[in-house]
Computed example of a mutant assay.
Amino acid sequence: MEGRARGVSPGPHPRAVLFDLFNTLVPGGSKDERDNVSRAMAKTLGVAPEGMATVVRDTFDDRARGNLGDLQETVLSLAQCLGVTPSDAAVASAATLRLEMTRSLHEQTWALSALEDLGAAGVLRGLVTDCTAETPLIWAESSLSPHFEAVSFSCLTGHRKPEPEAYLTAVRALGVSARECLYVGDGGSYELSGAEALGMSAIRFQPSDDMRGDTIDEDQNWSGIVITDLTDLVSRLA
């Protein structure tokens, strides 16, 4: 991507940069892509494909807060919402489809160079993501994992952005204050204004149209710096 930025300086150089995950470090996946995975799960579970696509979309908040349990418990709960109690083997097979989708998104990351450069410059890196049970399961194998000193997964903390605890879980793990952090995200989940409310500076990352997935609760009224290439962060913090 060709870099572009607009807006004002984010202020003093931060000790840490907190990143969103989907649409910031990896693609978010479109509604159609995610619905197709849900339909494939439905065939395995013996439920109606469109019913599964709908219930997966409708339960995002509960899944992102970990309210439905681990991945297999979640898949079972989704099937039961549609009136079916599938076998353990069917649940495991459907769960594998969710894991494969998440792995595929991580394999498309564009962020490694920027993360490496930030680490080399001594900047701490934290992840703050609204995610479902798949992301923690594949995190250790993700190429992103070695480049982060702290992570905050909503499905493990029970807190979604812009709730303060979503950010502060990572802030405390990094051993810094919120005011020493820069937050970078595409603007979903009102994450940019949420970060600023805690005293962080914030930058919106805008992925190219071909890589951008659907955004939930976009921070449309936020105004500030916008970049289209994460390597721009390194020059800003140099």
Rank of each mutant, 00 (worst) to 15 (best):
I216K: 11
D219R: 04
Y190E: 12
E196N: 06
N221E: 15
Y190S: 14
G213S: 12
R204A: 05
Q220F: 09
L192N: 11
L198Y: 05
D210W: 14
M211V: 03
E191K: 01
I203Q: 05
D219W: 06
E218P: 14
E196L: 01
Y190K: 13
R204I: 00
P207E: 09
L198E: 03
Q220Y: 09
Y190I: 06
A197T: 10
L192Q: 07
S201I: 09
G199Q: 03
G194M: 09
P207R: 06
S208D: 14
D209W: 03
D210T: 15
G194A: 07
M211C: 05
S208K: 08
S193K: 10
D209R: 12
M211I: 01
Q206G: 00
I203V: 15
E196Q: 15
D219I: 03
I216M: 12
E218D: 14
S201C: 08
S201F: 10
A202N: 10
D214H: 07
T215R: 08
A202C: 08
D217A: 15
S193Q: 13
N221G: 12
D210K: 13
M211Q: 11
G199M: 08
E191W: 04
S208T: 11
M200L: 15
D217L: 12
F205C: 02
A197R: 15
P207T: 07
S193L: 02
D210Q: 14
E218V: 13
A202R: 03
E191L: 04
Q220E: 13
G199E: 02
G188V: 07
R204T: 00
S193E: 10
G194R: 07
D210C: 11
I203R: 02
E218Y: 10
S189D: 15
L192F: 08
S189I: 00
Q220K: 14
Q206I: 03
D217H: 13
D217I: 04
R204P: 00
Q206F: 00
E196W: 02
M200P: 07
P207Y: 08
D217R: 14
Q206W: 01
D217T: 05
F205L: 01
R212P: 00
D210H: 15
E191C: 12
P207I: 09
T215G: 00
I216C: 02
D209Y: 01
N221S: 13
G213P: 14
M200E: 08
G213V: 10
S208M: 08
S193M: 09
L192Y: 09
Q206Y: 00
M200I: 11
S193W: 00
G199C: 03
A202I: 11
G199L: 02
M211Y: 00
M211E: 09
E196S: 06
D217W: 13
E218S: 10
E191V: 04
A202H: 07
Q206D: 06
M200K: 05
N221C: 06
D217M: 11
I216T: 12
D209E: 15
Q220T: 15
R204C: 06
S189K: 08
E218I: 12
S189T: 03
D214W: 11
S189V: 00
P207S: 09
